[in-house]
Design a protein around this nucleic acid. Sequence first.
DNA 1: ACAGTCATGTTAACAGCATAAACATTCCGA
DNA 2: TCGGAATGTTTATGCTGTTAACATGACTGT
Lengths: 208, 208
Amino acid sequence: MTVNANTVNIKSDEAYHHGDLRAAAIALGLEKLASQEVPDLGLRAIARELGVSATALYRHFAGKEALLEALAAEGIRQLGASQKAAAQRAGGGTAAFQATGVAYVEWAVANPALFALTFAGKTRPNLAMSDADGDENEAFRQLQAGISSVLPAMAPSADRASAAMHAWSLVHGLANLILAGQIDDDPQVIRSVVAHTFGLGGGAADCA
Amino acid sequence: MTVNANTVNIKSDEAYHHGDLRAAAIALGLEKLASQEVPDLGLRAIARELGVSATALYRHFAGKEALLEALAAEGIRQLGASQKAAAQRAGGGTAAFQATGVAYVEWAVANPALFALTFAGKTRPNLAMSDADGDENEAFRQLQAGISSVLPAMAPSADRASAAMHAWSLVHGLANLILAGQIDDDPQVIRSVVAHTFGLGGGAADCA
DNA sequence: ACAGTCATGTTAACAGCATAAACATTCCGA
DNA sequence: TCGGAATGTTTATGCTGTTAACATGACTGT
């Protein structure tokens, strides 16, 4: 296992000035994103806040876009981890599937800027199509696992793929609409909308 | 004096140099958005391309954000019109409802930058909550009409609201995921994913 | 018709941004 | 120890949004 340079590894102190600048930049970027609603990060601002010259970051990133991609990778990793934790907490089966959906939306709402960045532009890595081996694909793996727990294993793969896209679209759209201020950020609403589709096998945990 | 033949003139002739600059800026903005994937419009670029000084636009827009909002308003108007046309083309009932969903996604895919702009940031007007009287609310009105055609009129308004959010989230998420390159832009896929929910008819009925 | 006001344009200037080129330093392996 | 690679700095270029001060043309009230 190679050391993943992307991970947020804040060595306690005495770190970066002549240490690991790349990691420090990513850590600070995440920190700034966490306290912002819109991902308008600036290289200069990061460098300044890091006590380093503006152009120093070019030794570690090809440009602004490269830094943003690194942050996006971290974002998708966190999202996947959050979903995985929610699924485990819920046990298994349909409940776990719904939990991943709710976790998706809640993570997005809790991390607006990072979520926006993660899915911004066409330059981002294609999550669904990649071979789901990397650590950053936990999100899609959770989706597939959820599908498996709801649809019988013998269902045609076309149905499974369609269901996956359906579920993903639902939570993704709900998250985006909430972030756009078009739908209220109400846990009850989120749960209800998600349950409506994610429980599709049996329908209606919510309707009773 | 030279009338710029490139621009899509809203006002018939005798255009903008000492005419209607605001309209010209919006028209050019839309034109530029149409040939771009990402809404990185620049005030200076627009002014330059319009043959006018950079600061002239400040006589008509409070700032860049204001111009973007004007463009977003035009975007939501076009989206609603597209949905309305699709619904009428489809006749009525469930088919029309599905058609509005497909139209939503297809319009978004056909106008990536404008669609992104329309739903970017929290500063945009809240479509769902406003009183649906203005011309720009056709999109939400279509959504409600579609819901009405699928859910029985006597259904509790909570169910109707939930169904509306559900449908909206689905198409919105599907559009965004396609634009993010995560789902293939395949008409067959769009139709299938949309039909899955928009034809639910039964989804809510199951609960009763 | 004339004067004044207001809408609309102009130029100049400021601060901030991403990025590139040339230069300096530090570190590490042969 | 020496030389090159890695890392950081200064300087410079050209972009951006935005403000301030100034010009000018058109409309309006008397």
